[in-house]
Amino acid sequence: MSKAGWIRTILLVGAVGALELACRTGAIAPTMVTAPSKMVTTLVETLRSDEIGMHLQHTLSAVAIAMSIAIVGGFVIGFVLNWVPFLRRAFSPFLAAYYAIPHFAFYPLLIVIFGLGPVPLIVLATLFAMVAMILATMAGLDRVPRVLLKTARIHRLSLVEEIWRVRLPAAAPHILSGLKLAVAYSFIGVIAGEFILSTSGIGHEIAFAYDNFDNPRMYALILFVLGIVTLFNMMVFAWERRMLRRRGA
């Protein structure tokens, strides 16, 4: 590990230790923050005992569906927009302003349209995640070096072959970073939606525990969500790094 890595680890461990100490000695009231050790023990109990599996399943399936639609749809739309200049000109101002809109303001509307359930969550998360994928795909395809396309023409590749063997691999780094964003945004969309208003899911469970002053359970679940999402993001990150290294980049 590098020097910075060591310092970072020590810093994080120290912060958790300080929090533990402050909670144990009563410097921080248990009504505010519970001790990290208690978060972990409560988490183990929660995971073992009650119906948390069902909530987890609801959340993860919604995330998985939103993520798949966002990634596949975003890629296809980005590809088409890049291919047809007219469409691109028409949509690009819209895409540029897209992430300025606070999407969650539209969640109430989605609930009214689709009813309370998994559908508005999936729609919200897809809307949130897809445009990142569209933008990344377009950026990637834009930056394919001209010389590669010329080489493809010299080798008389067919259009499909040119796309498959030249354009896509050359655009891959950008597309991958879009994919990374799409994964993170799907999680954020689903969990935030559950948190605001829903009947099941991990986000809802946290909000429910908060409403019932059940701090230990709330902190345990927060820790759980942050853990899962960080793990997932790190997996995508590691995968991206491996792909990039194989390309020699």
């Binding site: 908060y210 942050l226 960080t230």
Partner: peptide, 10 residues
């Protein structure tokens, strides 16, 4: 990249 909404109760 973490859903910060989960930290809102804190």
């Amino acid at each position: 990249s973490v859903p910060k909404i989960t930290l809102y109760p804190v």
